[in-house]
């Protein structure tokens, strides 16, 4: 188990290294001449050359990457091109907001979709399964921005239960932000629901057909104990991975959702950074998100290994 964890940790570092190279290459070398993009259209060649030197763009790519990654590790994330402010505080603030949203979304989505998935799997081919499957299928076709807009219409404008706009003040505490989080989190729930329900259902059905479930039934165990001890225990293991993957999904979804609800998180910050081609900001946000994804994958791997004796005793 210790060796397993160590190996996974090694993979994590390697993945981060690779992604940092990818991101840096995309944002530093792909756009062509970053200095020219930054300077006014009528700037002189000398001015552009000076800007290039100022940004260090005239050095070799390897040196540029080295400087950037070193700065990133020690906490110097550079200055924003567009707003000329340090990147790090801006990103951390947005990150906290996004994490609050993600937490509420996961807390709503995971228990609900696991329950629905298990129920559908246990009643395969009968009416609860049909209804749940039909529901999750129709949710599959709804993009976040449509769900979000429809939920605002229904719950904010028509029923007036929740605020339509989630543009909370900077530095709001979780308690202050909570009412504004419900609608966007609900939207995110819909994104995750379809995916997790379908996978959980498939997993439960697969376990039900395993020979050891037959053994359990033929042992004379009661149906509830067959389900709890033999089916769910093994069916929920792969779901851990599913949840980890869905965190990656959720981040994609959150980018859109934050823009639908005007929520000041990483997604909205990223979009404005993209609009302004603010590369230091784009780099920082992307690295933070990738770190989150890789970390949740690691957590899932370790949890899986801890719960599955076949890996634990390797």
């Amino acid at each position: 188990m210790g060796r397993f964890a160590l190996r996974r940790l090694g993979f994590l570092v390697l993945t981060l290294l690779f992604t940092s190279v990818i991101i840096f290459s995309i944002t530093q070398f792909l756009p062509g001449d970053v200095a020219r993009i930054l300077m006014p259209r009528d700037a002189s060649e000398e001015a552009i050359a000076a800007k290039r030197t100022e940004l260090g763009l005239d050095r070799s790519p390897l040196v540029q990457y080295g400087t950037w990654i070193k700065g990133f590790i020690v906490g110097d994330w550079g200055r924003s091109f567009a707003w000329d402010i340090p990147v790090r505080p801006r990103v951390t603030e947005a990150l906290v907001n996004s994490l609050m949203l993600a937490t509420v979304a996961l807390a709503m989505a995971i228990p609900l979709s696991l329950a629905l998935g298990i129920w559908a799997g246990l009643t395969e081919g009968r009416w609860p399964d049909h209804i749940i499957s039909l529901f999750s299928l129709s949710v599959v076709g709804l993009p976040e921005f449509v769900t979000g807009v429809l939920l605002i219409e229904l719950l904010a404008f028509y029923l007036g239960w929740l605020p339509a706009n989630s543009s909370i003040a900077p530095g709001s505490s979780f308690a202050d932000a909570f009412p504004f989080l419900i609608l966007p989190a609900l939207t995110a729930t819909f994104v995750l629901l379809a995916y997790v329900v379908r996978l959980t259902r498939a997993e439960v059905i697969e376990q039900l057909n395993r020979p050891y479930v037959r053994t359990a039934v033929l042992k004379g165990l009661s149906w509830p104990s067959v389900v709890v001890r033999h089916v769910l225990r093994n069916a929920l293991l792969p779901t851990i991975t599913v949840i980890a993957i869905s965190i990656g999904w959720l981040i994609g979804g959150i980018i859109v959702i934050e823009n639908v609800f005007n929520y000041p998180g990483l997604g909205r910050l990223l979009l404005s950074a993209v609009d302004h081609r603010d590369f230091p900001l784009i780099q920082a946000i992307t690295m933070v998100v990738v770190f989150g994804v890789v970390l949740s994958n690691l957590a899932a791997d370790l949890l899986y290994a801890w719960l599955d004796p076949r890996i634990r005793y390797e």
Partner: peptide, 10 residues
Amino acid sequence: AIPALLLALV
């Protein structure tokens, strides 16, 4: 490891 939409935006 980079979510698809994020990679697309970058």
